[in-house]
């Protein structure tokens, strides 16, 4: 089996994997569109593998795969930067939620203690001050 066929099979497998993740709702829509686009670009490149040679020649690159590496590398760099931005936003939200939950729980527990003050309840001492 030639590397050409292997490339196409791999691209199809990738596309199927992405669609399966979408089907099972494991990817948010905004990200699934992105990966779907990626999968299609990879598939097209492996079917029309000559297009890469022509694109490389057009921008003056002799060894065509280096164009692929360059574009792929820049793309990954951008993706990772975007992901850390998303991660930072999630961290901020998690921290905020943790704070809110902790404050609410502390206030709720105190209210319960006030409502049925129980001499055997240790927390009662804290409210009695």
């Amino acid at each position: 089996m030639s590397i050409y066929i292997l490339g196409i099979l791999f691209s199809i497998a990738f596309l199927v994997a992405v669609m399966d993740l979408m089907r099972r709702r494991l990817l948010l829509e905004q990200y699934s569109l992105f990966w779907l686009g990626m999968a299609i670009v990879i598939l097209l490149l492996s079917i029309f593998h000559d297009s890469l040679n022509r694109m490389a020649a057009a921008v003056g690159i002799i060894y065509a795969p280096s164009l692929l590496f360059l574009v792929g590398f820049l793309f990954m760099l951008g993706t990772m930067l975007h992901l850390t931005v998303v991660l930072s936003r999630l961290t901020t939200r998690t921290v905020r939620l943790t704070q809110e939950v902790a404050i609410l729980r502390a206030e709720l527990e105190q209210r319960e203690v006030v409502a049925h003050r129980d001499p055997y309840e240790k927390l009662g001492e804290e409210v009695a001050r």
Binding site: T98, Q99, V101, A102, I103, R105, A106, Q110, K122, L123, E125, E126, R129
Partner: peptide, 12 residues
């Protein structure tokens, strides 16, 4: 709590 403070416990 015993010492007389209001305590907020962060779950993580």
């Amino acid at each position: 709590r015993k010492a007389g403070a209001f305590v907020i416990e962060l779950p993580v």
